[in-house]
């Protein structure tokens, strides 16, 4: 069990992102199917391409600080994904990484605070708020559960993000391509919230492997 006082290093973040890449690879078809229902059927393949680029870049350079690993990964996503998810996920990782700064070890508390800054940056860039049926509906519950601490905050964050993604089903989309559907977006799970939940699952997995 890992709590927020435990420290993480670049290796943990590296494992977090490679785990995320593997789950995006595994879930790509599911994400694309969700996107076909209320968007344009490319979310899975786009993130697959982006996280593959992240893994390649991290294989070439291996930054020694958690912050630097996240900044490098974020840049790769911006440069390789396109669509809305490229800038949004790229911003999430880059801003989280910048907030962590240069230290070679950071606490879980510091990661939780930095993630909140990253999620706020996503909200600002996309102009969305919780309840709009976007990735924020998984990111905010995830980061809040993480910040709440407790005996196993990473598992709590994973559960909260999953539940947040599931809670997008009855929502009416107000941002992004699904917003054009109006009421017809109701009844579908948001693909962005679904992929965001994968990030928290990957984080919980990476920390548990410590």
């Amino acid at each position: 069990m890992t709590d927020l006082t435990d420290e993480l290093d670049a290796g943990t973040v590296f494992r977090w992102l490679t785990t995320a890449a593997a789950s995006v690879e595994r879930e790509a078809d599911v994400l694309t199917e969700l996107d076909a229902a209320i968007g344009d059927a490319d979310h899975g393949s786009n993130l697959q391409r982006g996280f593959a680029a992240v893994v390649t870049a991290l294989g070439k350079e291996s930054p020694g600080a958690p912050g630097a690993v996240l900044v490098l990964a974020g840049r790769q996503l911006v440069s390789s994904v396109g669509g809305a998810s490229g800038p949004l996920y790229g911003t999430l990782l880059r801003r989280t990484g910048k907030a962590l700064g240069d230290p070679e070890r950071v606490t879980g508390r510091e990661l939780a605070d930095a993630l909140r800054i990253g999620v706020d940056a996503v909200a600002q860039l996309g102009g969305a708020a919780p309840g709009d049926k976007t990735m924020l509906d998984a990111l905010y519950p995830g980061v809040e559960a993480l910040s709440a601490g407790g005996p196993d905050p990473y598992a709590a964050a994973r559960t909260a993000a999953d539940e947040g993604a599931q809670a997008t089903v009855p929502m009416r989309a107000r941002k992004g391509r699904a917003s054009y559907l109006g009421d017809r977006s109701v009844g579908h799970k948001d693909p962005g919230a679904t992929s965001s939940a994968l990030l928290f699952t990957a984080l919980a997995g990476a920390v548990a492997d410590e």
Binding site: D40, A41, D42, S45, N46, R49, V78, S79, S80, V81, G82, G83, A84, G86, P87
Partner: peptide
Amino acid sequence: PGEVFTSPVPD
């Protein structure tokens, strides 16, 4: 040109 139905990247 971006990927199919996907905006290009800033670069």
